[in-house]
Simulated scan of single mutants.
Amino acid sequence: MKFQIDVLGIFLKVVVRLNKVTFAPLVVSTLFILLTSLLAHCARRFVQKTVKEPFVKLLLEEAIAAAELCGCCFELIVVADNFGVATYAIFLFALTIWWSLNWGDATACPYTHVEDLIEGKGDIRKALLKTWAELTGGLLVFKYVQLYWALEISDTHKNKAFEDCSADLQVPVLYGAIVEGIATCLCRLASRSLSDLNPRYATAIDSFIGTSLVVAAFDYSGGYFNPVLATSLKAGCEGHTLMEHALVYWIGATAGSIISVYLYKLPSIQKYVRGTTEVNGDSIWADKED
């Protein structure tokens, strides 16, 4: 706890000094994202060292990962609104790589547990508990974000802490669910393929594909592809009801994830994956000699 307070104190001193010299809202947002990632990393290390029971440890790691994901993405909304989608995409690309390298077995995403159920790798009790942990972390982190926004260190945070939020859904509900479902399906197919093919820079490739799909869906559904993330950031916002929110971001995304499980088992896709692994005809593959 003392370490975290010291880190927060140093962070605020850096931000205030920047504010006195030349105020840079993008730097303020960047430092907040870095602070959030650092605090989550410290919490994760603490849990790994002190909690012995594997499943309890995983639940805590899921909560931390969801809090980190949602905390960073709250600030990414500020980045997108003030500095454009291209800047937002650069931040998201880098963060996705960081999360892939640091979360371990945690996913911060409920539909991955549904996939495990379909493939016989988990049970429903554990899936529900992990989803509960993710929702808890994702919802509680807003108080932390709100505290920072209330400081109004940057002009981009003026009146941000207590303003009414608006939904990102810019198309009819059914179309939004289809967008979230198709994009989620493509993301999951890409991730599964990269996991089996194991190319060089697989993490960066996966991040690029995911970020590209998010940007493509940005002006339609917001491009969340994660029920917990969407709930933390947009549930209850003006523009759609909770039922419509659930249809788009929970049912739509989960349906896309489930479809990806069955699509990936199709002989044509499996033939491509096995053939690419054996032939190894591209220099990005891990075993290719350049």
Rank of each mutant, 00 (worst) to 15 (best):
A67I: 04
V7M: 10
I269N: 00
L266C: 05
E119T: 14
W98E: 08
T211R: 01
A65C: 11
L247E: 01
Y249H: 04
T107R: 12
L38R: 02
P199S: 11
I124H: 07
G181V: 08
A80E: 12
K49M: 13
L263K: 00
F208M: 13
G210E: 04
G71C: 06
K160Q: 12
Q146A: 10
A216S: 14
F32D: 12
A43E: 07
G281I: 06
T96W: 04
E68N: 10
G239C: 02
K52P: 05
L194R: 10
F74H: 02
A217P: 03
C73R: 05
V261N: 00
V21Q: 10
I258Y: 05
I205R: 11
L92D: 00
D219G: 05
C73E: 02
D219H: 13
L92Q: 04
V7L: 15
M243I: 11
E289F: 13
V79K: 00
E119A: 07
L194V: 09
L151I: 01
I182W: 02
L128K: 01
A150W: 11
F83I: 10
C70G: 09
I269G: 07
F225S: 05
I205A: 14
I251G: 03
A183T: 15
C42Y: 15
L8A: 12
Y220H: 11
A94W: 09
G256W: 08
Y272W: 00
E61R: 07
A133P: 01
G281T: 02
E53V: 15
K234Y: 05
G84H: 08
A177D: 03
V228M: 02
D105P: 14
K288D: 01
T156D: 14
W132F: 09
I118S: 09
L263V: 11
S29E: 15
S283A: 11
G239F: 07
C72V: 07
L213Q: 13
A230E: 09
Q270F: 11
I209L: 15
A89V: 06
D105E: 12
L59K: 02
S257M: 15
V56P: 07
A150G: 09
A86R: 06
G137L: 09
I209H: 01
L229V: 03
C165Y: 08
A94Y: 14
I205M: 12
A286M: 13
F162I: 00
A230N: 12
L169G: 02
T241E: 04
Q170C: 00
W98A: 12
T22G: 01
V15I: 15
T241W: 00
H245Q: 04
L58Q: 14
A94L: 12
R200S: 09
D168S: 08
Y262R: 05
S232R: 01
E53M: 11
V141P: 09
